[in-house]
């Protein structure tokens, strides 16, 4: 897809400061293009290093192809860049190692993350991939909040966790898929047990 034909997604451009003229162009894996301010990019350690290493001028940014982000789709990337634009210029928090983390989810972030769990999962994945510390913090906090006051049975439902038995069954199925002979041996063993033999040999 050419640059001219790429759909450009608006990312709160009114908030872009006058003094920062540079907008980088990024392309998601489903070919959606985004223009993001240089200051917003600083929230992502990965992207910040990337654009520094590229050393683009204003002309390069306009003339060269958009920077491709292969692992993230347009819907997720839009949320990521909206978040970065809103929080541009803010200090990146440093982990003091204490637990549990005390993180407040700001109103803007809460609205941004008012999305289905599938998209939230992708957002966490993207925040980690692009190394956006505070976005990862708030999105993980949102997931952690789902656990508050829940029993193990409720947690299994909320987090789609298989029980130990289901885990074992899945593991067995995977092993058997690899080695059909294993299933035959097990069936033979079960049959002998039914017939009253206590020794396999």
């Amino acid at each position: 897809m050419s640059v001219e034909n790429a759909p450009v997604v608006d990312v709160d451009e009114a908030a872009i400061p006058v003094e920062k003229k540079m907008y980088y162009r990024f392309e998601s894996n489903d070919k959606k293009e985004f223009r993001v301010s240089e200051l917003a990019i600083q929230q992502s350690e990965t992207l910040n290093r990337l654009v520094e290493a590229m050393g683009y001028t204003s002309e390069d940014v306009e003339n060269k192809p958009a920077i491709a982000i292969e692992n993230i789709d347009g819907k997720t990337l839009k949320l990521v860049f909206q978040w970065c634009e809103h929080h541009k210029g803010e200090a990146i928090p440093v982990d003091d190692g204490s637990v549990p983390k005390i993180v407040e989810i700001p109103e803007f972030d809460a609205k941004l993350m008012d999305i289905d769990n599938g998209l939230l999962f992708k957002l966490i994945w993207a925040a980690d991939y692009l190394n956006i510390v505070q976005l990862l913090n708030v999105s993980c906090k949102k997931v952690a909040n789902m656990a508050q006051g829940k029993t193990p049975a409720q947690l299994r439902r909320v987090y789609l966790l298989p029980s130990d038995e289901e885990d074992e069954a899945a593991k067995r199925a995977a092993q058997e898929a690899q080695d059909p002979r294993a299933r035959e041996v097990e069936e033979e063993f079960e049959e002998r047990k039914r017939q009253g033999g206590n020794s396999f040999f």
């Binding site: 637990v99 993980c140 997931v143 909040n145 987090y159 298989p162």
Partner: peptide, 20 residues
């Protein structure tokens, strides 16, 4: 549907746990 935390990467999962 729930959110399958066991499919998160180790760093992300650790981050979730440390908010609990």
């Amino acid at each position: 549907p729930g959110l399958p935390i066991d499919k998160l990467r180790a760093v992300e999962l650790e981050r979730v746990f440390k908010h609990l």
